[in-house]
Write a protein that binds this DNA or RNA. Sequence first.
DNA 1: CTGACTTTGTGCATTCGTTCACAAACGCTT
DNA 2: AAGCGTTTGTGAACGAATGCACAAAGTCAG
Lengths: 249, 249
Amino acid sequence: MTVHPSRSLAERRQHAADGLSQAAEPGSGRGIPDATVARLPLYLRALAALAERKVSMASSAKLADAAGVTSAKVRKDLSHLGSYGTRGVGYDVDYLIYQISRELGLTRDRGVVIVGVGNLGQALARYGGFVSRGFRIAALLDTDPARIGDWIAGVCVSPAGDLEEVVRTEDVAIGVITTPAPAAQPVCDRLVAAGVTCILNFAPAVLCVPADVEVRKVDLAMELQILAFHAQRKGAERGSGMQLAEAVR
Amino acid sequence: MTVHPSRSLAERRQHAADGLSQAAEPGSGRGIPDATVARLPLYLRALAALAERKVSMASSAKLADAAGVTSAKVRKDLSHLGSYGTRGVGYDVDYLIYQISRELGLTRDRGVVIVGVGNLGQALARYGGFVSRGFRIAALLDTDPARIGDWIAGVCVSPAGDLEEVVRTEDVAIGVITTPAPAAQPVCDRLVAAGVTCILNFAPAVLCVPADVEVRKVDLAMELQILAFHAQRKGAERGSGMQLAEAVR
DNA sequence: CTGACTTTGTGCATTCGTTCACAAACGCTT
DNA sequence: AAGCGTTTGTGAACGAATGCACAAAGTCAG
């Protein structure tokens, strides 16, 4: 038996079919492509919907349909996590939920700090999807004295000066920026200096961060503009020959 | 009535107007890659910031810095729109703003309907970034009688039953879905049936649409989960040398 | 046990996107 | 007009992601 004694994190469950797979290093999660990581939450949502309907097993085709992707993509994506499927049968829904949750780090609750309690910040704070998925709002921060002291979704709005202390005491790993654009970079700098390594930026500004900090951005105006491009493209085709004009009934 | 109820939406985002292989026509801009289109709003924002600082010309390097991308990417992206730069000099800021705006279809104002006036819907309605970029909120729709009649950002909340009429009379091309997940697909079907060809979906649900309808999705919980993955990855490396065993090096 | 059937996991080809490197084009100076 | 420095536009190399096809591995019936 070629069992590695000091193997990667946690315990390695005995994946029965070890066979000849040596390069994959299942479960260690080292080389998961970004595109796959971005889809894991999608699968998680689809699996949760299946579990709600008391479905205990799901093939890649069924999962693909529920997630809106192709079955080949599902299989390749899941294969990066390890061999958690059974050939001829499919994937165990509950077990796969657990494995993906573990890979995403959702098994342990994570503190999130939201900086900027404007329209969007308030909406995010009240959005149930955060808390229900293991994210705890550690703090709501703002510079406006009129807002400080307000209670939103059971959390009190604190002055922005508390940022460093909150990050330290609450072990915050994720910062959400919902400030106006000019305040975004200074806030970002303070978050990074305080030890935050992952930032979700809703402000319409380009953030400059060290290489070891992960930034994801959501720009609502940008999304609309992209759609406007497609709307124009479709609209232009309407003038010439179209095969499906208003045939949708 | 839905067109393909059980149709797997495998190849939904695939056609990028490949009908005509020719893409050399600068003005028409038929074959612009999706990745480039997604960055055009980013360039637009960067250019607007430069224009505000009275910068009249900008090289690809300067633009790249302002947009947070590489200069090669800027040049290749802009080359898809046509030759709007001057060698040895750079790009004229105002002219480029006009060209990109035109390509994105922002020169003519576009009606947007927001369905679902909850936390997020309200925040979007009040978000200034929409109106300031040529998007007009044609209607706010909701099913909750308690919300109907409210005035948000100068727009009155109408009953969801008005959807078809609003889309028709206001020539709405873009629909924004901010309903709870279960209501998303029915709302989507009604939008599509009414003639909306572009949909921005904030509901945590997979939408099934005909091939000629463009859907973009923004899932806030999903973004946080992706960040959680990176947070865990970084955290594991820092805390102890569990992962990254000696095998890799 | 055998054989028919189902489904995973994965090598391979293809398509899509990014990066590199450089000739062509432009302004400016002489 | 000619030479010099700068910057664009683009072919080509490279890399990542997707789709395809099929062997391996499982279930199930008899």
